[in-house]
Structures are given as structure tokens and as C-alpha cells.
């Protein structure tokens, strides 16, 4: 039952740029993005749909690139982390994540940013519950998540032109209570 895999070709539209690629038909979008297109910004932590690190947007919808054959991605609009900034300007999500320390090792961040982007496009002013739900398929082992939620709220505000900022205690210590007698 040893099947020989066939090779196929496709023109993938990634971040509005066409990539003509040849790849074995059993390769996932994750593999083709990283290995054929050189777009290594998309990460992987399980390859089984369990961590969200590989998330990209296909036609605006977040998908797990480890569970989608690249062969199914032709003629569709693929967005990856590399396309989030415009020229040399960061997307508000990127600014907020960088400035709030919402990224530590940074490995889970590309996937999370793509999910957050999809959310903000659907819902410019998401509730905390919506942010948590939207990002809930993405595991992070460094941050403890709360700072990420806050960063998304901050980015949403920036994108709306609202000057809301995370509270001071997100940047500094909560003020210490007066020493007891």
C-alpha cells in the first residue's frame, strides 16, 4: 500500500503576491509556505491542529495551515504574518504587542496576530470575551495571555482612532499599599 505521492503545481496568492510553486500533493499549506515560499514567519507547534501556531487567513477566515493541503489553497487569498505590516509601518496589533510586552519568546505570536486580525476585521470593538474566544485555539506558554488580550484591546482602539490606552498598572507595578503599622 505504498503510495507514491504525486507532485502538483499551483499559483498561491499570498499577501497579494503570486507564488508559483511545485510541491508534493500531500504537503500542507504550512509546509509549502515555509519550505517552498520561504515564508517562515508562520510557525508550528504540533502539526495536528492543537496549538494555533500555524494559523493564517484564507479568504479572511483563520485556518490552521497544518491541516489544509496547499493543493486546496490555489485561487484563494492567503494572508500570513509577513503581510501584516504595510511597507515598513507596523499594523496597530504589531505596535501594541511589541510595546505592551505581549510577546515574549514570540513563537506563538504570528498565529495569534493573524487570529486577532481576523477578529478586528469582523468586530472593530471586541469585548474581552470575544477576544479570548477568538484567540482560544492558540496556546502560549510564556505570557499568561492577559497581556495579549490587553494588547488586542489597545490595537483595536488605535485602529478605531480612539485614544484609549491600557491602564498604568499594565506598564508599571500596581501601587503598593502603605506599609502597615
Amino acid at each position: 500500500m505504498k503510495a507514491r505521492s504525486t507532485t502538483t503545481t499551483a499559483v498561491l496568492k499570498i499577501n497579494d503576491e503570486d507564488h508559483a510553486v511545485a510541491f508534493p500533493v500531500h504537503h500542507t499549506l504550512l509546509e509549502v509556505l515555509r519550505e517552498e515560499c520561504g515564508l517562515t514567519g508562520t510557525k508550528h507547534g504540533c502539526e495536528l491542529g492543537e496549538c494555533g501556531a500555524c494559523a493564517v487567513l484564507v479568504d479572511g477566515e483563520p485556518v490552521l495551515s497544518c491541516l489544509m493541503l496547499a493543493a486546496e489553497a490555489g485561487d484563494r487569498n492567503i494572508e500570513t504574518i509577513e503581510g501584516l505590516q504595510r511597507n515598513n509601518d507596523l499594523h496597530p496589533l504589531q505596535t501594541a504587542f511589541a510595546d505592551l510586552g505581549a510577546t515574549q519568546c514570540g513563537y506563538c505570536i504570528p498565529g495569534i496576530l493573524m487570529l486577532a486580525k481576523a477578529l478586528l476585521e469582523r468586530e472593530p470593538d471586541p469585548s474581552e470575551g470575544q477576544i479570548r474566544e477568538a484567540l482560544s485555539g492558540n496556546l502560549c506558554r510564556c505570557t499568561g495571555y492577559n497581556r495579549i488580550v490587553l494588547a488586542v484591546q489597545w490595537a483595536a482602539a488605535m485602529a478605531r482612532g480612539d485614544d484609549w490606552r491600557p491602564p498604568p498598572e499594565a506598564f508599571h507595578s500596581t501601587s503598593l499599599p502603605q506599609a502597615s503599622a
Binding site: G41, Q94, A98
Partner: peptide, 17 residues
Amino acid sequence: PFRRVDGRTKVTGQLQF
């Protein structure tokens, strides 16, 4: 509080693991 020096590469997908 300042932006970590690797902050930008970590949100752009530029950083290579």
C-alpha cells in the same frame, strides 16, 4: 517601560528560529 529590543522582529515574522 520600553519596547523590548527584539519586539519588532517578534511581531513581523522576521525573527528566525
